[in-house]
Design a protein around this nucleic acid. Sequence first.
RNA 1: GCCCCCAUGGUCAAGCGGUUAAGACGUUGCCCUCUCACGGCAGAAUCAGGGGUUCGAGUCCCCUUGGGGGUACCA
Length: 480
Amino acid sequence: MDTIRTRFAPSPTGYLHIGGLRTALYCYLYAKKNNGKFILRIEDTDQARYVEGTTEIIYANLKDAGLLYDEGPDVGGQYGPYIQSQRKADYLKYARILIEQGDAYYCFCDKDRLEQLHQQGATKYDKHCLSLSKTEIESKLAQGVPYVIRQNIPSSGTSTYTDCVFGEIAVDNSELEDNVLIKSDGLPTYNFANVIDDHLMGINVVMRGTEYLSSTPKYNLLYDALGWQRPIYIHMPPIMRDEKHKLSKRDGAASYDDFIANGFLSQAIVNYIALLGWSPKSNQEKMSLQEMIELFNIEGISRSPSIFDLTKMKWLNSLYVKELPFEQFVQMATPWIDKSMVAGKYDYDKLCKLIQGRIEILSDIPDKINFLAQFDSYNLQLYVNQKQKSDIDIARKVLPLVKRTMMGINEWYNDTIYQQLCQIAQDSGLKNSQILWPTRVALSGQQSTPGGATELAELLGKDESINRINKSIGMLDMTP
RNA sequence: GCCCCCAUGGUCAAGCGGUUAAGACGUUGCCCUCUCACGGCAGAAUCAGGGGUUCGAGUCCCCUUGGGGGUACCA
């Protein structure tokens, strides 16, 4: 059996969006699962939509996501070039063969005539130039009349093929249009370049979005006309923003880079999108790339579109954040702490210990910790907590004791502070929570914090802690 | 308009003619706890509608409805 060869063939028209990344992922998984090769090919035949620099982003993103391709523009390979615009000669060669065989023809119709055709209600090209005589064609060619080359599709009959996920697909040839194969600028259209390149590069498994499901018969006709073996097709459903809209680049953060910039971990991104449109037999959800390769199977690919759920993606991300080795978490969190008001203050390691288990994405960090650098007036009702048996009066009574105790502590560590504060409770016949709750509020002015009263105290340091307790006592004194 | 495709909770989804219709996110309640989070336990919530076929239908067929895609000198 031939080696499986799959390809991801993006156009360099913008950032690598999540849909594209998933296509790449499935191609990669399928290839690796079958000990095959995963190839990257850049489809830049549309000069108008080309965006400078985006090929480099594609390379970088794919590698960052762990989807290492065996062949590609920047890594080489035996089937190059891997950039479509550099393969011009081949396309023309095959187009001429097709013309020779009557499977394609020169078309000299200009935009005006095409438009007219459309206005007259035609849904497709009328094969007008198919009936041109050889001499007519030659003279127009000699005169330099602009032309395109069109595929000559049979006007009757049915084209059928089997897709691995959707099963048998049948389309009447009469539904198919004589598409342009070679544009007037001499470059091939996607339709054509795709077939030629896939064949020449030995691609035997074509994986792509369902937008090609109904046009695949056209490609098959090309394969057949050229006497080439058709590839295996695996079409996959789109990722949606909601029931009605595809998740598009315009939806804001929808590219790989956007997610990274928003504090998602690369592994989590890959893991989550793997689950959008595919699920393993075992129903396992958290998977490494290696596990995905092992579990991947076409039967698990779903046929209906799936809606992107940011909430679930965050949850998955939080799992990866939690299991990050501490050192690595500190390293990744540091830029986010620097970006917060806490920048440069407090011990980053201690800070990270408190937040690692409490954030979902890295960008949650600033909001979680800003209070450490900012201590203004807060709502005194925070002292009221039924479950902790705390209220404003308790706070008034307890905080001065806390302050005095703190001043006497020399070993400023969580454990000792905790012990000492609990001692107050014992001495005064109160519950621990009646000391700790007011203390935490007095230190933070927050409803919830990444850490308990004494953990915060350690982080803030003795001076700042006492300072904040003082301010809080002041606030309490000012209210009746 | 025409053609292709799809349809299980709010979301991702198991399920391949006989199940109490899995699981996960989210949600609700409880437990744990120096708050929150984590973790643990429990609960609510789904087969779009209508016809068939069958002893039996979420599973097969048809129609309706809803949704996606295609219908380019874009990919």
